[in-house]
Design a protein around this nucleic acid. Structure first.
Lengths: 143, 143
DNA sequence: AGCAGTCGGACAACCTAGTTGTCTATTGTC
DNA sequence: GACAATAGACAACTAGGTTGTCCGACTGCT
């Protein structure tokens, strides 16, 4: 039935990601946050979790500092971030998440979690935990 | 430990995809097929499986016919495809996979399958089947 | 047989999310 | 004080898509 099991696995992983993300983006738009992408949401999470400069954000997301700077510019434009001079280090621009940024994060997280909970209801908590465990092994080990 | 389970699931899915694909691209390069991307390999699979025109390929991959045409142009440039006039329909350009294309497909599939088999060895066949089942539900149903 | 509508393909302009390379200003280290 | 490392800005580029427009070829209907 499936003549390409390995390639199918890859396509399933990508399709799963886009399905989940599309759902969340639609929900964010419905809740008053149009123009937000998954990249934005992940970056804002990383900044709120401690990445306080473009270089640091790039390292934390695994992309170049230039790419991180572009994402930061977009988030600032959408009023999700403030950039201020760092009094300790004149090279840096200190990043803080605005109130609107925290609101967007909460809605995004809520939508992600709600989807995950619905999925758990359909396939069972054990199957979902098993999936997450397999993916963690896939991404962190030499398989 | 994980304060964002839903977002983490999305990131795991994407990271799983890129891990798998990067591995295969490296293997293809090592086996004499540099410049091949996952997009190319998936498109060639779809063409070999019956998508015989740019429009049809686009529908089968879920992208616009223009995007499919760009991928086809790249595959033709890399000598993985032939485009010939269709005697039955002068609008169409009939697509056939070359010998080198079939060789590349075989290597790509082999690399994908080998990785999947190694993963099954680490986590068990049941866990892998369960993962694929969950992803199929995630991508094909209204969850 | 004619004609309207659909379909395949090409071309252009644009977008997103990244890349590398180069540059300046600042900071930390010996 | 010299010098390497770091933060950020700017430019040019790439991949892989998108819409919109257009034309020529086919198809179904009357």
């Amino acid at each position: 039935m499936d003549t390409h099991p390995g390639a199918t696995l890859a396509q399933l992983l990508l399709a799963g990601f886009t399905t989940l993300v599309d759902e969340v983006v639609v929900e964010l738009e419905r809740e008053g946050h149009p123009g937000v992408t998954a990249t934005h949401a992940f970056a804002l999470d990383a900044i709120d979790a401690g990445a306080q400069s473009a270089s640091e954000l790039g390292r934390s997301l695994g992309v170049s500092k230039q790419a991180a700077a572009k994402t930061i510019a977009a988030l600032e434009e959408l009023s999700y971030l403030d950039r201020r001079a760092d009094p300790q280090d004149a090279r840096r621009k200190y990043l803080t998440v605005t109130d609107r940024g925290h609101e967007m994060m909460a809605i995004g997280e809520g939508a992600f979690d709600a989807y995950r909970t619905r999925l758990a209801g359909q396939v069972g908590t054990r199957a979902l935990h098993s999936l997450e465990n397999v993916l963690r092994i896939l991404t962190t080990q030499q398989v």
